[in-house]
Design a protein around this nucleic acid. Structure first.
Lengths: 214, 214
DNA sequence: GTTGACGGACGTACAGCGTACGTGTCAGTC
DNA sequence: GACTGACACGTACGCTGTACGTCCGTCAAC
């Protein structure tokens, strides 16, 4: 028996196996062993199916939030949970990012994150701004990681940075070894720590106001 | 006479006017008053055309770098220059983000940014990590701004957050007014300042190493 | 002036796409 | 038995990217 979730799962599988470009209603139907138009009994159109895929992927994020942990650790855990799913469904993640997220699937993560930020001492608009900034960093990082890994297209040779004129681009040239290689885990953790530290400073300033201006 | 740049410009215009989904070789050709297949004399295929669009948009970023300014101000200026282009070509920017950027068009910005970071006192891998983190934040922010603004699809009603059960999502519910509204300029500057401050702390720590571990 | 080569614009054709519409087959209810 | 709804399916239409062949304007060689 066909169902919306079976269709979504098959679509995600297809995306991960053959890439987002390979996704067509006919391919999905073939994968399920049904006719094309049968899908439309459960999904209004392809755009809605892609939205459902986004929702499905986002809902897979596991937020094992430990309220007793320090808020900095909770931030770290939540960020890594996001990233883990993105790495598990890299090509589908690109689909998520390329679409509007206007669904309530991501509401639980938001609730958890806001709760964490409140513990950190952020109130009202400040908490929301912090959350948005954090999400921006995570999304931007994952877009790079997932776009670079063999996700959407086969990786091209890294000769692009090798044949750079050192006279024109001295910095790029001298930092070439760092630019060509990239330990994604390390990069992510680096930015994560920087953000957590920046938030700690900000939190201390506004919450405890410890020895500031005094 | 047809040319690659004329095709790219027409494509960008079309994307901005009617959205990325409306882009087809036939539409572009019609906009230029030529036959479809004439395009293929200048562009190998549609994917290459989209890559050319990315390159074109990225190359429009104006980096009026002032080496005499303080590095923090240079960082701000560079980030805003990026954002300005994204706002000028919002729908095309989505195309840029959805593709692999593997072109040398973004090399000048990279050079400028690395130079700025060197002035800030970052060396080697640290500079590259800072750059990547910064780009991640900017890209993530723009993805949200540009994805929310009437860019890809018409904006949906903001009733998604209104009908939230306060018992299930207390934080989301109480912060609803902050979550539904969003001053993008303010948000961007907020994160920008936070990052610049975080970088300043880091720069002071590793460059001057003033009174650390002492 | 004629000829040949060639680059570029173009038309045709084909496979594949999303999906509107109609049809057939069941399960459940009177 | 008849009626009803849900659901799987086939057909068909307009669209897509693009391979291929054709035609024409320009220019070099003779």
């Amino acid at each position: 028996m066909l169902s919306r979730s079976r269709i979504v799962d098959a679509a995600v599988d297809l995306i991960e196996r053959e890439g987002a470009d390979a996704v067509s209603m006919r391919r999905i139907a073939a994968g399920l062993g049904v006719g094309v138009m049968s899908l439309y009994n459960h999904v209004p159109n392809k755009a809605a199916l892609l939205d459902a895929i986004s929702e499905s992927v986002l809902s897979k994020i596991e937020f094992t939030d430990d309220p007793s942990a320090h808020w900095t650790d909770r931030v770290r855990v939540q960020a890594r949970a996001f990233r883990q799913i993105a790495h598990h469904y890299p090509r589908s993640t690109m689909v998520v990012f390329s679409r509007q997220l206007h669904s309530t699937a991501g509401l639980l993560p938001v609730e958890r994150a806001l709760s964490t930020l409140r513990d950190a001492g952020f109130e009202g608009g400040e908490a929301v701004r912090m959350l948005r900034m954090f999400v921006a960093y995570i999304v931007g990082s994952l877009l790079r990681e997932v776009g670079v890994t063999p996700t959407f297209a086969p990786v091209r040779g890294d000769a692009t940075v090798v044949d750079v004129d050192p006279a024109l681009f001295p910095e790029v040239s001298s930092l070439a070894p760092y630019l060509t290689s990239c330990d994604h885990d390390e990069e992510f953790e680096f930015g994560l720590e920087l953000l957590v530290q920046a938030m700690s400073v900000r939190a201390g300033k506004q919450a405890g106001r410890r020895s500031a201006r005094g």
